[in-house]
Write a protein that binds this DNA or RNA. Structure first.
Lengths: 357, 357
DNA sequence: TTGTAGGCGTTATCAA
DNA sequence: TTGATAACGCCTACAA
């Protein structure tokens, strides 16, 4: 791994100055003869421009960071999958940060913007603390936050609307005749947990249904937590006829328990998940789920950031992505595909991509 | 966003030379008094070291690239989730490249190593072409390939063992008394497709089962392709009693069709998937699946690369990760969790993490 | 212990 | 049209 050639090497070889080499490489007006000599030398040497040196000089890295708690989380993954191509098309590389939902890690990422190894940052904080706000105020590069920040924070920000999302779900359940609708929520000190809890209560009110504390359970955002919560719920309130789950994993846990308890889904208990991940289509019965538009939020965030990077000095913008309800078998009853005669016509499963390697 | 402070700014403010500032910042022996002055100045100015300038000088970026076809693919995602923390712990940032399985993109990534924006690369090529080998031979930074490269290629490489993996599955099915085991494969011009096809044929031979072309179907690696293939298969060979699917998505498609056709799983037809993704545990019946150790391969690759980066100049190494069969309901019959008295005791579902935001 | 100066690989200015 | 030269921000001999 010998040292690669630099413009100096080329200059020598071509018998011109480094300035000329640089000009040719950047397509600035140069005599044809010189162009030829430089290109020839560059070719023979297998020259490739040093990105680090260019960055130092130009003060642009052509890199953007994306920071979220955990790539394994389908919601973040959906964002990532949209962010990546948008950035790539604009000539930016993507630096990935997993913060494991540790506040200090998020702060560290914000702080590290000062190192200038990226031109901008897209961040999805699980909670927004005072420390976040302080760092954001003095951030050394443009930042787009996916999630809600307090009004007045001078940061571009892309929001979900879980309030409307939860309402879509409850309206749907109500329209199906369900009246005892429980909520299986995540921790209340997370942004999504708090928002979904509040939205549930509000939507119930609008539907003239009573708010009953017994019908609300809190656990973590995992399948086992969902199972545990629903098991307790069934014991305490055997009469529930619908479950609103704060995410798809919780809903899968709910399905596990309902099956084990001999309750039919959706006949006895209808189940709604949230985030509309690939798991929703994969489960059986397939899961009705509220999509909060993770993919769209990722795309919007990337676009906002690119505008900033291309010089926009406007006021902070807020984009809100509308939710959507993906209705499947867990509320609407079996929607089996049909098999006849060697042909299968199925429901449209959101089918994630997969190769195997 | 005023220009951030540099060591010059600090030097002025502290009334010392930039060399002293640099020394203090790097913890080199310095008089206490000077240390104090420099630290104070740095603090007041909110100084952060410029990573780009450091890289230019040190010739190390502390960045590593990970290139694969598509993050949405659970197998790659599993790798990524292992790679990230290993690199992070070692002080490296992760640059993500999605190549969409386009060979030119992969070559471009290899080429871009010359730009020296990363210290090394982990790559998962879907196919390994001549062009790959040429680029690998002259790569300007250490590369670890996940997947198989021709013997003699001078590159560290981490392999799966799909041959043994397929054999595990077929042995399992055979032990369950299945004798007409079909294969639903992906494209034969991909590395995994070719390997799985060959392994199937070989394993059948070892089990003294006849190889029957009618029992082999080729489609793409997606759910709809799996459904289509299995629909045809059922029409052509209604007597099959087991399906070996080249990945989990194909297997989900198979389940769709079997359900629609009124075949019970596993009583009438047993189904095995491959890659053991989260979808396998989420589906119903839950899916027996061959794990090719994506996570382990990712981890191994990251560790190999780190060793290289820490100066290892040894010969190329080959690591092979053994497969594992995750047995679930789609072959072994229902393994329902139990619900009694407000408590749920379930099977251990591989539950991916999920937050929602 | 400290400061001066050169260099990492580019880009860009300014004369020639 | 070209070449010498000065940055970009940092590190590090080497000399003081």
């Amino acid at each position: 791994m010998a040292d690669g050639p630099t413009i100096n090497t080329i200059a020598e070889r071509a018998g011109v100055s480094i300035a000329s080499v640089s000009r040719v490489l950047n397509g600035l007006p140069t005599r044809q003869e010189t162009v030829r000599k430089v290109m020839a030398a560059a070719d023979e040497l297998g020259y490739v421009r040093n990105a680090v040196a260019r960055s130092l000089k130009s003060r642009r890295t052509h890199q953007v960071a994306f920071a979220m708690a955990d790539v394994g989380n389908p919601a973040y993954l959906a964002m990532l999958r949209q962010i990546q191509p948008v950035l790539k098309a604009a000539g930016y590389r993507l630096v990935l940060h997993s913060t494991d939902a540790v506040v200090e890690d998020e702060i560290a990422v914000l702080h590290s913007l000062g190192e200038r190894y990226v031109d901008g940052l897209i961040m999805v904080p699980l909670r927004v603390t005072e420390a976040h706000l302080r760092m954001l105020a003095t951030a050394r590069a443009p930042v787009v936050i996916i999630g809600s920040v307090p009004d007045g924070t001078r940061v571009d920000n892309v929001r979900a609307d879980s309030r409307t999302g939860v309402r879509l779900a409850l309206d749907h359940l109500h329209a199906l005749g369900r009246r005892r609708i429980a909520l299986v929520n995540g921790p209340l000190d997370t942004v999504p947990g708090a928002a979904r809890g509040a939205a549930y209560r509000e939507a119930l009110g609008d539907l003239d249904l009573p708010y009953d504390e017994d019908l609300v359970r809190i656990g973590d955002f995992y399948r086992a937590d969902g199972a545990r919560a629903v098991a307790e719920l069934l014991a305490a309130r055997p009469d529930i006829d619908a479950l609103m789950c704060a995410n798809d994993l919780i809903a899968l846990g709910a399905l596990d328990v309902l099956r084990a308890a001999g309750r039919r889904v959706p006949e006895d208990v209808a189940v709604v998940g949230m985030d509309d991940t690939d798991l929703a289509a994969a489960s059986w019965p397939s899961l009705t789920s509220v999509s909060l538009g993770s993919a769209e939020r990722g795309k919007a965030a990337a676009e906002l950031l690119l505008e900033r990077l291309q010089g926009g000095e406007s006021d902070p913008r807020v984009v809100t992505v509308p939710p959507r309800l993906a209705v499947r078998a867990s509320t609407a009853g079996p929607a089996y595909g049909k098999y006849t005669d060697g042909k299968y016509t199925g429901e449209t499963h959101a089918g994630g991509k997969e190769g195997g390697a």
